[in-house]
Design a binder for these strands. Sequence first.
DNA 1: TATAAATACGAACGATCGTACGCTAAACTG
DNA 2: CAGTTTAGCGTACGATCGTTCGTATTTATA
Lengths: 221, 221
Amino acid sequence: MAQQHLDGRRVRGDESRRVILARAIDTASVDGLEGLTIGRLADASGHSKSGVATLFGSKEQLQLATVAAARDVFIERVVARARARSERGITRVSALISHWLAYSDERVFRGGCFFAAASVEVDARPGAVRDAIVAAMAEWEDYLTVSIEHAMTAGDLPDLDDARQLTFELVSFLEAANTRSLLHSSTEPYHRAAAAARSRLLSLGADPAPVSEIVGPETAR
Amino acid sequence: MAQQHLDGRRVRGDESRRVILARAIDTASVDGLEGLTIGRLADASGHSKSGVATLFGSKEQLQLATVAAARDVFIERVVARARARSERGITRVSALISHWLAYSDERVFRGGCFFAAASVEVDARPGAVRDAIVAAMAEWEDYLTVSIEHAMTAGDLPDLDDARQLTFELVSFLEAANTRSLLHSSTEPYHRAAAAARSRLLSLGADPAPVSEIVGPETAR
DNA sequence: TATAAATACGAACGATCGTACGCTAAACTG
DNA sequence: CAGTTTAGCGTACGATCGTTCGTATTTATA
């Protein structure tokens, strides 16, 4: 899997990149990917400006590395945790929703969901960065769609002809809650999103028990 | 209402501001309010850089004027048109949704809905610009909520204890459709949003006839 | 008619941006 | 051991940013 011979130079560089990217994902979630600047990242991480520039090559490559780092965090906080704590079926779908809300509410990124911010920033601007955001979001929505299809196969949900429609509706609630929580400095939107997702799944005849585990903040965990 | 004595100087300045702001709302919908620059607006509108600076005073005031100009466009394209073409009740609610989708789909702003872009940009950045965005969005959501309450009073919808919950769900669909249409250069998300809103209203027992008038692109109008 | 206000311009300011160049030190490769 | 690659720094470049200043022009006001 990993390289056989660890290159000490690359190890050092990877660690530097790791530290810098940890700052970058927070900064970008607040100021946007365009708001990332090499100079400020250098100051914040104790490197020189040209050092940061060397480590990433160009601003666009820095942005792409930031997207990749944010994707790792998202997968760990939402997908991996939901997988570890739920079985396939409606329970998994509920867990994905609940962990997404917790991920946004807990401000894993300082400016809320990184991809909610980035997708809106780049949606009208073609380029490699936009392509990376599109790919990451498609990955997430595909995973949620497959999870819904598993719930259908398990008989937890009726056989919808278009699981993607339900995915669209659920992620709509999640992203709207993220933005409104930030705009109004309130956790109420998370409760609204949880209630909306719950009632939508119940309207499809899902088992009320796992669906009721879609929770907003306060009671989350 | 208006001033009695028109000041010829102000008339000239207002016209200049009008032309500049027409560019600004399009630019901001693509590059964000922070992406607005006085120099580029000057070039695009045939004014000098210092001329634009004089007309607006500061960049923040330019951003605030841009938000106000975008609000005017939104009210005309969505609220005023829906009011003119529908009666109070579920018909009005459907019209608001349908006109919102058309407003986004027709790219009244080059980068899609101005407020969808701006709200996500400023949601984690306190300041006067964010306050203006919050106020404009609250105005819109309040209007939709009141329209829902009118539909309830008219008996078109059951008496929900919380009309704002339905508002949250509906605007979630609209904004998600806007972003996804831009990200994927597709009109499909508008059909998804229309279908989602339709089925949500039908699940509340609304009259299928006016609800079916919530339409995506192609068939819109 | 004198004064003030508003539009508009050119020029310049200090700051910050992304990038490039030259260089050193360390680590790997033949 | 010689040569190459990578990390990292200092410096400098041209571009663009928001803002300020001085000045001219037009219009309104006293």
